[in-house]
């Protein structure tokens, strides 16, 4: 089958404004959208830029907006877009480096601010720390995060408020707040208990719908809100 693509193009180094370019490419219904991008770049237009690495939704490189919906190009199949023109754009709100490639530093910085590492009490024992499997299960969903930024790109609040820490940072806060081995429960909660923290979330659920790893992002954020409320007045 033949697929039609319209792709966001912008090289901020040489042009003031972005433009869109159309491509036609032959594809098998089982191909990934990423396969089509590769075919375009390898066979037609080597100037097109995008990120990719593992090609099966584990590394998180190829987050982009596909027909208006944030997702991974390697997880979307051609057959689901049959008969449509596919519009590919970079993740919204992220500064564009070139074409579909966006700046990730700000996104990672906000996750880093959550201190995403274990802060356990005291010296570690000789062997492993013991952890009840029920406690371990509390982080089952969130450890699926691959830092692809699709949730943050999809969040409508981010459009209005660039200072919101964003859903991905909150997922990482949740990861350690809910880890029974960690000792910073209060401090971590306080760190997100402010207007641009957990309270910016308005329950649009777009993050949950966008997450390619099916993490219940909004539910996690709501849990954090409840836990923060339990801490008492700020």
């Amino acid at each position: 089958m033949e697929m039609q693509f319209r792709i966001f193009r912008h090289d901020p180094q040489v042009e003031a404004k972005p433009h869109y370019r159309s491509y036609k490419v032959k594809a098998d219904p089982r191909d990934r959208i990423l396969d089509c991008l590769n075919r375009i770049r390898w066979e037609q237009d080597g100037t097109l830029s995008y990120r990719m690495s593992c090609g099966h939704g584990v590394c998180g490189s190829d987050g982009m907006r596909i027909n208006g919906v944030c997702g991974l190009a390697c997880q979307q199949l051609v057959k689901d877009y049959e008969g449509q023109e596919v519009l590919l754009e970079p993740l919204p709100f992220f500064p564009v480096v070139k074409d579909l490639v966006v700046e990730m530093e700000g996104f990672l910085k906000r996750i880093g601010e959550q201190r995403p590492h274990l802060m356990a009490r005291g010296d570690p024992p000789e062997k492993e720390r013991l952890q009840d499997p029920r406690d371990r299960r509390k982080v089952d969903d969130v450890i699926r995060c691959i830092l692809c930024a699709c949730c943050t790109g999809a969040c409508p609040v981010m459009t209005r408020n660039g200072d919101y820490v964003g859903p991905a940072a909150l997922v990482w806060a949740y990861r350690y707040i809910c880890d029974s081995r960690d000792s910073l429960y209060r401090e971590r909660l306080k760190n997100i208990d402010f207007a641009n923290g957990v309270w910016s979330c308005e329950n649009f659920f777009d993050c949950t719908r966008a997450c390619p790893k099916k993490i219940p992002v909004t539910r996690c954020i709501n849990t954090l809100k409840r836990e923060a409320e339990k801490l008492g007045p700020r």
């Binding site: 180094q13 830029s49 070139k98 490639v101």
Partner: peptide
């Protein structure tokens, strides 16, 4: 190489 530019030249 098609891509003669500097930015993100994976080509």
């Amino acid at each position: 190489v098609d891509h003669k530019g500097d930015r993100f030249n994976t080509d």
